[in-house]
Simulated scan of single mutants.
Amino acid sequence: MTALLKAAERPGYPARIALVLSNTADAAGLEYARAAGIETAVVASRGRTRPDFEAELLATLAQHRIEIVALAGFMRVLTEDFVRVWEGRMINIHPSLLPSFPGLDTHARALAAGVRLHGCTVHLVNAGVDEGPILAQAAVPVAADDTEASLAARVLEQEHRLYPAALSWLAAGLVRLEGGVARIAAETATVALANPLPERAFIRRD
Rank of each mutant, 00 (worst) to 15 (best):
A3L: 13
A3Q: 02
L4S: 04
L4T: 00
A7S: 04
E9C: 13
R10C: 14
Y13E: 05
P14S: 15
I17V: 14
S22L: 14
A25D: 06
D26Q: 08
Y32M: 14
A33H: 03
A35S: 09
G37L: 15
G37M: 14
I38S: 03
E39D: 13
E39H: 10
A41V: 13
V42F: 06
V43S: 06
R46S: 12
G47T: 04
T49R: 14
T49C: 15
R50Q: 14
D52T: 05
A55G: 02
L58I: 03
L58E: 08
L58R: 00
A59F: 12
T60F: 11
L61R: 00
L61D: 03
A62R: 09
R65K: 13
I68S: 07
I68C: 10
I68P: 01
V69E: 07
A70E: 01
L71A: 04
A72Q: 04
A72F: 05
F74S: 09
F74G: 07
M75T: 03
L78P: 03
L78R: 02
F82H: 02
V85P: 01
E87V: 10
M90L: 11
H94K: 03
P95L: 11
S96C: 12
L98E: 01
P99Y: 05
G103T: 03
G103V: 05
L104V: 10
L104K: 00
T106P: 06
R109K: 11
A110L: 06
L111Q: 02
L111H: 00
A113Q: 11
L117A: 09
V122C: 14
L124D: 00
L124N: 00
N126A: 11
A127T: 05
G128M: 15
G128I: 08
V129L: 15
E131K: 08
E131I: 07
E131W: 09
E131P: 10
Q137S: 10
Q137K: 05
A138F: 01
A139M: 10
A139R: 03
V140T: 00
P141F: 12
A143V: 06
A144M: 11
D145L: 13
D145F: 08
E148I: 08
A149K: 03
A149G: 03
S150M: 14
A152G: 10
A153G: 00
V155T: 12
E157L: 15
R161N: 06
L162K: 04
L162R: 02
A165C: 13
S168Y: 09
S168I: 07
W169Q: 04
L170S: 01
A171M: 08
L174A: 09
L174N: 03
V175N: 01
R176P: 13
R183W: 12
R183M: 15
A185M: 12
T188C: 15
A192T: 04
L193V: 04
N195M: 14
P198M: 12
R200Q: 07
I203Q: 05
R204Y: 11
